[in-house]
Design a protein around this nucleic acid. Sequence first.
DNA 1: GCCCACTATTCGGTGTTGCTAGGTACCAGT
DNA 2: ACTGGTACCTAGCAACACCGAATAGTGGGC
Lengths: 109, 109
Amino acid sequence: MATLMTEMLKGTLDGIVLAILSARPAHGYEITAWLRGRGFTDIAEGTVYALLVRAEQRGLVEVAKVPSEKGPPRKVYSLNARGRDHLDEFWKTWSFLAERLQQLRKGGK
Amino acid sequence: MATLMTEMLKGTLDGIVLAILSARPAHGYEITAWLRGRGFTDIAEGTVYALLVRAEQRGLVEVAKVPSEKGPPRKVYSLNARGRDHLDEFWKTWSFLAERLQQLRKGGK
DNA sequence: GCCCACTATTCGGTGTTGCTAGGTACCAGT
DNA sequence: ACTGGTACCTAGCAACACCGAATAGTGGGC
């Protein structure tokens, strides 16, 4: 059921996008396309934009408006120092969770 | 500020509890204590109970009321066939997510 | 007898999150 | 004109975990 993924993405999608931005600056549409290509087929378009706005409000990313040849201007996001710190924290939390779940999976059944 | 872990647990705590129940029947208080012992120190007591009620409403678990020597009667939950199916789905979804994140972590930075 | 700690469950209200389902804007090809 | 691809935004919704408090039973210390 797709519902499982929806709930599981809460809290992780945030980190996923930051991780993408840590590799290279990108804009919303690009990020969405990238996610779709990686198998996250059901991630809604609006979700990514809302998430980027939140990231900006928290001061995790910098924004640059870049005119596009096709369509409206792009908003290119790039990770700043605070964002990198946040990403580190994210990976720590993720590692903790992933370890416990791996143990559970082995132990159970 | 919502903690990272709180948001990340959304959707996964559900599976964690089912995984615990797949090993052996248990009641709410016991599950909470188990989680605390495993490092999930900040999981609220009420959270587990609410989660168990949801699982029951979805028909994933069976409930048995067992009198306790200490305190009020326990509600002992055990996984049924539907619950095991759901757990399988959970692990599939989790695996998918964990794989993508592992790739991202390697690739990024 | 009275209070406290521990066991055990329940409930209403809150904040964060991703999804739904639209809309705006710009340009190229037909 | 019209369609399709690019690119962004928004309001309202449902699900989830947290918080704080209440309820209830048992046993031990004073």
